[in-house]
Design a protein around this nucleic acid. Structure first.
Length: 271
DNA sequence: AGCTACTCCTGGTAGC
DNA sequence: TGCTACCAGGAGTAGC
């Protein structure tokens, strides 16, 4: 479940290998993965485009190409990107490959097939509604105070709303709320200013740690491009720790469903 | 405005 | 062993 830190890890690993490379073509055996435009046009427009930059926006990888084209990839639940020699056998879960100069290709492996690829002239077609980056200056205490108190949303689903903040997923939402000592079902307009400051700090703390640890690898779901594991899972305080002891107090970690998602918290020290 | 339910997918696993 | 049923979840959408 690549979230902001996992996507950032992909971007940092792939960037040096992709900058300046030319995409000679695309191979796809599952058209639904090419979300926009239709596969024929996608194939035609991406031919011979050069990668000028690779950045992350929320959970999206954003490849700026020449000729005013932008390639955008969302890994969703189980997506994985790697650069392989064309002679290496192709895993059955690879449905889209970008052929590069130099006998290599960027392979998009995606077991659950939720991931999507876009090719657009205007990135705002895909990214336009995203909220601020949680590790940017824009995401300040003042911004959060205004935007939490101005709504009456339940905190956990609100943190998962990409149009509110971009990049937080189920794991980091639970971990951030634990750090902030806030119950996931609190209403956004019920927080004090100091609780909001704690939430901002909690979000930034867990995301920064996630990047430092190069993401969280659970089961076989997330791996770095080279197939190795990140280490963030070793720092989880609540996610996946149902019925285990709280690391901060004598409480026990509970799991409930909020907004349709598994939600982990300590009901003793998260208030 | 904000919530729930449903949809898309597959691999892993619990239960029999 | 082998089968079935169910679960995980990001995000869009329909409906209340």
């Amino acid at each position: 479940m690549p979230e902001l830190p996992e996507v950032e890890t992909f971007v940092r690993a792939l960037r040096p290998a992709l900058l300046g490379r030319t995409i000679q073509g695309v191979r796809n055996d599952w058209p639904a993965q090419l979300a926009k435009p239709d596969p024929d046009e996608f194939e035609r427009r991406i031919q011979l485009r050069t990668v000028e930059s690779l950045e992350r926006r929320g959970k999206y990888l954003v490849f700026k190409l020449d000729e005013n084209e932008t390639l955008i990839i969302h890994l969703k639940m189980s997506g994985h990107l790697s650069i392989e020699n064309v002679s290496k056998s192709v895993d059955k879960h690879v449905h889209t490959s970008f052929l590069l100069n130099g006998k290599e290709e960027l392979r998009f492996r995606d077991i659950r097939k939720f991931g999507r690829v876009y090719l657009v002239n205007n990135p705002d077609e895909v990214l336009g509604d995203l909220g601020p980056e949680p590790l940017s200056d824009e995401f300040s205490d003042q911004w959060l105070i205004e935007n939490l108190l101005g709504r009456k949303r339940i905190l956990k689903p609100l943190l998962l709303d990409q149009n509110f903040i971009a990049g937080i997923g189920n794991i980091y939402a639970d971990e951030a709320l634990f750090q902030a000592k806030l119950k996931p079902d609190r209403r956004s307009n019920s927080l004090s200013n100091s609780e909001i400051q704690g939430l901002r700090q909690g979000i930034q703390k867990v995301l920064s740690l996630g990047i430092k640890e190069e993401g969280a690898s659970i089961d076989t779901i997330y791996r770095k491009p080279d197939g190795s594991m990140g280490f963030m899972q070793d720092s989880f305080a609540v996610y996946g720790r149902t019925d285990m002891g709280c690391l901060r107090c004598s409480g026990k970690i509970k799991k409930i469903i909020l907004g349709g998602r598994g939600t982990h918290f300590c009901d003793q020290c998260q208030l």
